[in-house]
Amino acid sequence: MDSEVAALKAHIDAIVPTLATKADIEVLRAEMHKMSAEGYRWMVASMVGMFIGFGGLYFAANRSLEERPAPVQAQPQPQQPIIIYLPQPVPAPQK
Rank of each mutant, 00 (worst) to 15 (best):
M1Y: 11
M1H: 15
M1E: 14
E4A: 14
E4K: 11
V5P: 00
A7P: 00
A7F: 08
L8H: 06
K9S: 12
A10F: 08
H11F: 13
I12M: 15
I12V: 15
I12S: 11
A14L: 14
I15A: 15
I15E: 09
I15Y: 06
V16C: 01
V16T: 10
T18S: 11
T18E: 09
T18G: 03
L19T: 03
K22M: 04
D24G: 04
I25G: 02
E26S: 00
E26R: 04
E26G: 07
V27L: 13
R29E: 05
A30V: 11
A30H: 13
M32N: 08
M32W: 04
M32V: 04
H33F: 08
H33Y: 09
H33A: 07
K34G: 02
K34E: 05
K34L: 02
S36C: 10
A37R: 08
E38P: 02
E38N: 00
G39E: 02
G39V: 01
G39A: 00
R41Q: 07
R41G: 04
W42I: 10
V44W: 00
A45N: 08
A45L: 07
S46M: 06
M47W: 13
V48T: 12
V48C: 04
G49N: 05
G49M: 05
G49T: 06
M50C: 13
F51T: 14
I52L: 07
G53I: 02
G55R: 05
G55L: 06
Y58Q: 15
Y58T: 13
N62A: 14
R63T: 10
R63K: 13
R63M: 07
S64G: 05
E67Y: 10
R68Y: 02
Q73W: 11
Q73V: 13
A74H: 08
P76F: 01
P78V: 03
P78N: 01
Q80W: 08
Q80N: 13
I83V: 05
I83M: 04
I84Y: 04
L86M: 04
P87V: 01
P87G: 00
A92Y: 01
P93S: 00
Q94R: 11
K95D: 07
